[in-house]
């Protein structure tokens, strides 16, 4: 699957591509407005990551152009402007999601995954990892031995892990994903341990592999030795 990364900051673009490419994605970087315009005309992308403040052009015009061309590419806006007006106008112009800098790459990866699932497998919005089936539509999880009853937080945690398989995730990134970044509290990263522990226990009980590994004091990793089997999409 092809991703178009429209980001004028070379280093940020490199990081994004380096983090995402291992997930069956081919990243096509684009550093300026005109180049991005050319690229969206040439081919379709599974998802376009769009920085709206570009040199020589407003990223919102790329959205307009996509709309004019009648393209259904998923678009995730990444912007340094955390202003409601920008969010509203971006989403009104057909963007699928909006992420404010500075973001965590796992968060970006999770959102890109969500957009692609929504766009590509209509009605079949599922993540399948070995015997583990996560139904995004119904918010249900099935293991080898049937349904796994998860709390909302555990479910969100699992989906987040699934969007960042085989990646080290910091506790900080996990907390921000689950509780939002406005929750600001001293030593607040340790209480996710309970959720992790419960999720791991429930997955094991349902006959799943022991996917969740702790990485030193830093965070966690969702390890899948066997490659994820994607639903019928070549």
């Amino acid at each position: 699957m092809k991703l178009l990364v429209i980001e004028d900051e070379l280093e940020l673009s490199k990081s994004i591509c380096s983090y995402l490419k291992s997930d069956n994605f081919i990243c096509v970087p684009s550093y300026d407005f005109q180049d991005a315009m050319n690229k969206i005309h040439e081919t379709d992308y599974a998802c376009i990551l769009l920085d709206i403040s570009l040199p020589m052009g407003n990223g919102l015009n790329i959205l307009r152009e996509l709309k004019n061309l009648g393209k259904a590419d998923g678009v995730l806006i990444i912007s340094a402007k955390n202003s409601l007006q920008d969010k509203v106008s971006g989403l009104e112009l057909g963007a699928d999601d909006y992420l404010t800098k500075p973001f965590h790459l796992p968060e970006l990866s999770a959102r890109v995954g969500a957009i692609i699932r929504r766009k590509t497998f209509d009605g079949q919005n599922r993540i399948i990892i070995d015997e583990l089936i996560i139904d995004i539509q119904d918010k249900t999880v099935k293991g080898k031995s049937g349904n796994i009853d998860l709390t909302r937080k555990e479910y969100e945690l699992l989906v987040y892990f699934a969007g960042n398989k085989n990646k080290v995730l910091t506790k900080e990134a996990i907390v921000e994903h689950l509780w939002g970044e406005h929750i600001d509290m001293a030593n607040n990263n340790d209480f996710i341990y309970t959720h992790i522990k419960n999720l791991r226990k429930k997955l094991l009980t349902a006959g799943c592999k022991d996917y969740i590994k702790a990485v030193y004091g830093m965070g966690y990793k969702f390890e899948t030795e066997v490659k994820e089997k994607k639903p019928s999409k070549k």
């Binding site: 900051e9 280093e11 940020l12 990081s15 994004i16 380096s18 983090y19 340094a80 800098k101 500075p102 973001f103 965590h104 790459l105 796992p106 080290v168 910091t170 990134a173 990485v215 830093m218 965070g219």
Partner: peptide, 14 residues
């Protein structure tokens, strides 16, 4: 933007 770059580099580094 520079904050994003530093954070993304760390995300890749780990």
């Amino acid at each position: 933007t520079p904050l994003s770059i530093i954070r993304s580099k760390l995300d890749v580094l780990i």
